[in-house]
Write a protein that binds this DNA or RNA. Structure first.
Ligand SMILES: [Mn+2]
Ligand SMILES: [Mn+2]
Ligand SMILES: [Mn+2]
Ligand SMILES: [Mn+2]
Lengths: 219, 219
DNA sequence: AATATTATTTAGACAAATCTAAATCATAAA
DNA sequence: TTTATGATTTAGATTTGTCTAAATAATATT
């Protein structure tokens, strides 16, 4: 199966939107890929012909087994490159997504596996997302809740849901990154903002919107 | 200047063929890029419009100053990725060209410079070719001759001219790589074959064709 | 149930990159 | 200097991925 970069991007986005097995709609995918619904319909036909998606007119689409396999390979490459950029080249986590978006399209199993080995076969990328192994198997995600739902007093950051540059830059400015330990000082009912403290630093208050996008686990 | 991958490949190939300032012909470039002369003419018009080459119908072409600058950036990325693949991921030198052919198209100065730094700002790639610095300046190539012209008795391998997988695989099998020290034992006039010895190993005889493509310097 | 709204598809067009076949140019040979 | 050969360009097509505008289907509202 020889896929173009465009086809790979579609496959990956369908995978992302589908979460489990929800049907993906034309408009949602167009929005995700910053393209137009008409273009999505065109591509849907191509991917259906290649048996990578199940698709009936007006009924939305989901990845086929083969499509899912390919999606996991792309996601694997994407997340491994993100690890490389952060761990080895010392990029900060909000910079790496865009670069990985291109690097992920270099299709070489040997390269991918060597890279993984070189990085110590990491299980999670810099944003806390699990990295599929060479067989496409995902590590079971660690038990986690969003920061606004957390009940424990001391938590550690495991992931960031919204990976917009804006949020990641904000977190960077506040020195909140993956594995950062937070102490939840106060939960203000008025606007659901949360006061948190990172050890050795003065406590800060973050909005509900931010807290919703920070995933944490106890201790 | 936003170039497509195809345009970048053309620029790089023109750079390669032009060596100094020789005019590049349509057919030569078509052969190099494994495409057809008609396609080259089409692209020549585009690159001329973008002022990356000087081109008049039927007169061949050369890179403009801007084109040369871009070529050097692509070459820099290509050779740095080759270093990465060999030094860090332990690929052998005959495998890396193809992968670098894709990785070179990720255009990010920051990534390129970080990668260079990470590798210790290497001056030569795994095939002995010089790596342009961030300003496009090339290290003066070391004084070298092809193995069949060498006069010194003991030489060290500095580059390989023909980078076909076939030759590189042959050299690999004979344990000849960059920086390998060779002792020239005998030069047979009959077919211009050369008997060489790598320390600790029985001597071997290589053909003139191979010797012509191995560059060496004394000591 | 009829109508309005929104989602999706179709029709037709365009740019990029390629190709084949035919035409044209440059030049080497006679 | 004419002719033959090879190199190069042009004309016209094709594929891929995209778009706008119009048509149609699905769904929500009255
Ligand atoms: Mn991508
Ligand atoms: Mn990520
Ligand atoms: Mn390339
Ligand atoms: Mn090289």
């Amino acid at each position: 199966m020889n896929l173009s970069i465009a086809e790979e991007n579609y496959i990956k986005s369908i995978y992302k939107l589908q979460e489990g097995d929800t049907v993906v709609t034309t408009n949602a995918l167009a929005y995700e890929l910053e393209t137009k619904p008409a273009s999505v319909t065109d591509m849907a036909k191509k991917l259906k012909d290649k048996k990578l998606i199940d698709y009936e007119k007006y009924k939305g689409f989901t990845l086929s087994a083969e499509g899912k396999k390919i999606a996991l390979q792309i996601v694997r490459r994407h997340r491994l490159w993100e690890c490389f950029l952060v761990d080895k080249l010392h990029f900060s986590w909000e910079e790496v997504h865009e670069l990985a978006e291109e690097l992920e399209h270099v299709r070489s199993e040997k390269l991918t596996n060597r890279l993984s080995e070189y990085l110590g076969n990491p299980l999670f990328d810099p944003h806390g997302d699990p990295i599929p192994d060479a067989n496409g198997k995902l590590t079971k995600p660690r038990p986690q809740t969003s920061l606004d739902q957390a009940t424990a007093k001391r938590v550690v950051v495991t992931a960031v849901t919204d990976q917009s540059t804006a949020l990641l830059a904000f977190l960077n400015a506040k020195h909140i990154k993956l594995s950062t330990q937070l102490e939840i000082v106060e939960h203000y009912e008025y606007d659901n903002s949360i006061e948190i403290k990172i050890k050795q630093q003065p406590s800060i208050t973050i909005s509900e919107q931010v807290a919703k996008n920070i995933m944490v686990r106890p201790v």
